[in-house]
Design a protein around this nucleic acid. Structure first.
Lengths: 118, 118
DNA sequence: TGCCATACCTTGAACCGCGAGGTATCATAA
DNA sequence: TTATGATACCTCGCGGTTCAAGGTATGGCA
């Protein structure tokens, strides 16, 4: 429910971004997402369940995800998939994020139109 | 005063990072920093004074910056420079930030499946 | 005189991510 | 049998950051 109109509140939506991306690649359930993010990032990013589940619920509430219950090995899992709206949201978030980080990275390395530095 | 031991709290410290970087390049004062960030980022990043000044004070309090008052054209300015501790802090932050964003970018593009469009 | 740019500052609220805690089932080990 | 750990879901409240909005004061200009 953010929608900051000035800055995109910087990197706040990273969990949402990663979750949307994963689900865009394949159907997954919450607990699986927690571990997938951890392992695919080489343990650099470790989102707790207290982060992932609320994001999942929020995205579903916004119509970006849809879910279905499935029983596997006697365990109940809730699988999520990305809707068309979710895909759009992912594309938009992804682009914003890339623009922002690219800009920052440039400021960190290049600095500006002045390279007389060592 | 953060010092998240798990995740580096993602991108929270971006204002601090940018400010340290600018001051590492040259001595500047608060009002100037606000405009420098705005212009050098092509208006993509617009930090308000309510963000910049507190960060400046916090960094000085932590010994990462030192300041001196200077009168220019009858106007009082507080110029900040980076201390040795500040340089270390910048190096550390910068590295952490780059690692993190690189990882995320890889997760975003590494999918290598079908690609929708813009 | 009035207005805008400069230049500093603080405050309150909003927001987000986080850890801690809670429930329940299944597999394995003691 | 019991107990421990992994699986799998969930919520609550704290804390840290950012933000807009507001406040003070001076200088330049019309």
């Amino acid at each position: 429910m953010a929608a900051r109109d000035t800055n995109p509140n910087f990197m706040n939506g990273v969990p949402e971004l990663l979750i949307l991306k994963l689900l865009h690649q394949q159907e997954m359930y919450g607990y699986e997402i927690v571990q997938a993010i951890r392992s695919r990032s080489g343990d650099l990013i470790a989102l707790g369940e207290g982060v992932v589940y609320p994001v999942l619920h929020g995205l579903e509430h916004d119509g970006a995800l849809k879910s279905r219950r499935k029983i596997v090995n006697g365990r109940s899992r809730i699988y999520y998939t990305v809707t068309a709206a979710g895909s759009r949201r992912l594309a938009h978030l992804s682009r914003t994020w890339t623009d922002l980080t690219t800009t920052i990275q440039t400021m960190l390395t290049g600095g500006l139109h002045e390279e007389a530095l060592s």
